[in-house]
């Protein structure tokens, strides 16, 4: 990654709270995303990992304003997203690819109508011919055959459906795509096809990705940098290799030590850093550091205040009171 790349997306103190009813007249905020700040450079892939329910999807959806942020600011291409016009522009240039290639496409629509729908909504063509040409171009981008255009989504395999979903996401020429577990439902052999396609599209179209996945080796492969979330908070962010080989946060260390490495010698020699207990409910998040109830290094201070998300080495951010002592 070169230093001089411009920032395409900047998120400052992003919050997304959901109201959860706890009785007839009372409700409680579920802090799905709580004070998260980061930025993504143009043409870069930022990976986002963490246990299920930690807020990854919510970060993606809130950036795109599919959820109205409870707090914080989102800057897209240098401009804060504030007005209706900003939002329309964001919706055109930033989009999302979903996990489940089975349920995210309408089985009764043809491939060409699924891909053409965003074009129709945003009136992106002069005539039928131009529409058709654009659809075929998009299908070409994702390696779908033009003969597939008139067929229905349910006739396709998981990998092919994921291609259809990606072609649709590309329809409006976006510059930024949130990829929410886009290969998790696919078999490994098909996963590799789709991962390579994301790579190639990025080179060809200059795309920027926020890539959410729970398979750390997949994320490491595709990402320039990786961010780790725990219970609604971002706890660490660094270059992909850096975070994998030199994690600083106690949670990241444990997460990485748990990765099942497809190599018997490495896997058997691996010493896992086990975590005690379960992840707390986000409705009852601990005070201070969210990880402290499971952290072997926790002290009183960890219960008192949330550690600052701080740059401790160039480009390496971590939110832990004891980073220096632990990594001494």
């Amino acid at each position: 990654m070169s230093e001089e790349r411009e920032t395409i997306l900047r998120v400052e103190h992003l919050k997304e709270y959901f109201d959860i009813s706890t009785g007839f007249f009372s409700s409680k905020p579920l802090k799905a995303v709580d004070d998260v700040s980061f930025e993504i450079k143009k043409g870069e892939t930022l990976g986002l990992v963490g246990e299920s329910g930690c807020g990854k999807t919510t970060v993606g959806r809130t950036i795109l304003h599919l959820y109205q942020p409870t707090g914080g600011k989102v800057f897209f291409e240098g401009k804060e997203v504030k007005t209706k016009e900003d939002l329309l522009e964001l919706r055109r240039k930033a989009t999302m690819v979903f996990q489940d290639p089975y349920s995210s496409l309408n089985p009764r629509m043809t491939v060409s109508d699924i891909i053409g729908e965003p074009l129709d909504i945003h009136k992106m063509y002069k005539d039928k011919k131009e529409r058709q040409e654009r659809i075929l171009e998009l299908m070409g981008h994702v390696g779908l055959n033009s003969e597939h255009a008139a067929r229905y989504a349910h006739e396709f395999s998981g990998g092919q459906r994921q291609r259809i979903g990606i072609a649709r996401a590309l329809a409006l020429n976006p510059s930024f795509i949130v990829c929410d577990e886009p290969v998790s439902a696919l078999d490994v052999s098909i996963q590799a096809q789709v991962i390579n396609m994301f790579d190639e599209l990025q080179d060809k179209l200059g795309l920027t990705y926020l890539f959410i996945a729970h398979d750390l080796l997949v994320v490491k492969h595709i990402s320039d940098r990786i961010a780790v979330m725990y219970l609604g908070k971002m706890v660490e962010l660094a270059g992909a290799d850096e975070i994998y080989h030199h994690p600083l946060h106690p949670y990241t260390k444990s997460l990485i030590s748990a990765v099942p490495v497809p190599d018997p010698k490495i896997a058997r020699a691996n010493k896992r850093i086990a975590l005690s207990g379960d992840i707390p409910s986000p409705l009852n998040a601990p005070s201070g550091c969210p990880f402290r109830t499971r952290c072997q290094y926790a002290t009183e201070k960890c219960a008192e205040s949330m550690p600052e998300f701080k740059e401790v080495a160039s480009g390496h951010f971590v939110a832990c009171h004891r980073t220096e002592e632990i990594n001494g």
């Binding site: 490994v188 991962i195 080796l217 997949v218 497809p262």
Partner: peptide
Amino acid sequence: GLLKSIPTV
């Protein structure tokens, strides 16, 4: 083929 299609460390 299977082994070449998965990311390693």
